[in-house]
Write a protein that binds this DNA or RNA. Structure first.
Length: 214
DNA sequence: ACATTAATTGTGT
DNA sequence: ACACAATTAATGT
């Protein structure tokens, strides 16, 4: 058993409490490392394992009919990709693409254990159900943010979400990237950011944004 | 250290 | 949204 993996899991996933389960995860889990910008899962590939993020952050996207990508959500350590559960269980090709937005570390659990553990471990079952629940709520929030909020509010929401989850208030991102995630034009984002800087909400730099009062 | 180039950001229409 | 200007970071000499 890999005690390193065991520790990483314990740290990032305190909800998964059962000792036996933790040990089994350390037994069958494999570490994977991804560099910033690397695609982790692509469209149309089979998902053969469930990824548990222990370090970094991951962006989950999907394509619409016209082929432009839209952001679904970001994943941070301690969260699991609900999509991957679904894909695994019905052994389906991926509808989504995931990409590391920072250098990231993942523990991968082979697909056969997902099912097995649901019957065997209460805390695993809860973990999966809770993941779905959280993701579902998150998507609802995203939907009404798109439907009802103005772009400046959406931007603020986006920034604060990306900020405090990494401990430091500095976000490494370009205006273009934000525009892409929010389906807006780069100029619009630049101008809104400029306004936020005037209001002392952020401090702008090349490739980075520092949050001040959010 | 300086010049060149590419990427990012800013502005006017 | 587009075109272009200005600025900044990266790279080569």
């Amino acid at each position: 058993m890999d005690t390193n993996i065991l520790q990483l899991i314990q740290r990032a996933y305190p909800n998964i409490a059962e000792k036996k389960l933790q040990e089994e995860m350390a037994e069958v889990g494999q570490m994977r490392y991804y560099k910033e910008g690397q695609t982790i899962m692509d469209y149309g590939t089979y998902v053969r394992y469930v990824p548990l993020l222990v370090k970094g952050s991951i962006k989950v996207m999907r394509q619409d009919e016209e082929g432009n990508e839209i952001l679904l959500y970001y994943l941070y350590p301690g969260e699991a990709c609900s999509m991957s559960f679904t894909c695994c269980m019905i052994n389906k090709k991926s509808d989504i693409r995931t990409e590391a937005t920072e250098d990231s570390e993942i523990v991968t659990i082979p697909l056969k254990f997902i099912d097995l553990w649901i019957g065997k471990y209460q805390s695993w079952k809860n973990f999966i159900l809770r993941s779905y629940d959280e993701r579902f709520k998150e998507l609802i929030r995203t939907i009404d943010s798109i439907a009802f909020k103005k772009m400046d509010e959406r931007l603020l929401e986006y920034l604060s979400k990306r900020g405090d989850l990494n401990k430091s208030p500095i976000i490494h991102v370009t205006h273009q990237e934000i525009a892409f995630d929010l389906n807006a034009s780069r100029e619009a984002i630049s101008r809104l950011l400029k306004q936020l800087e005037k209001d002392n909400k952020v401090k702008l730099g090349r490739n980075k944004i520092e949050l001040i009062n959010i």
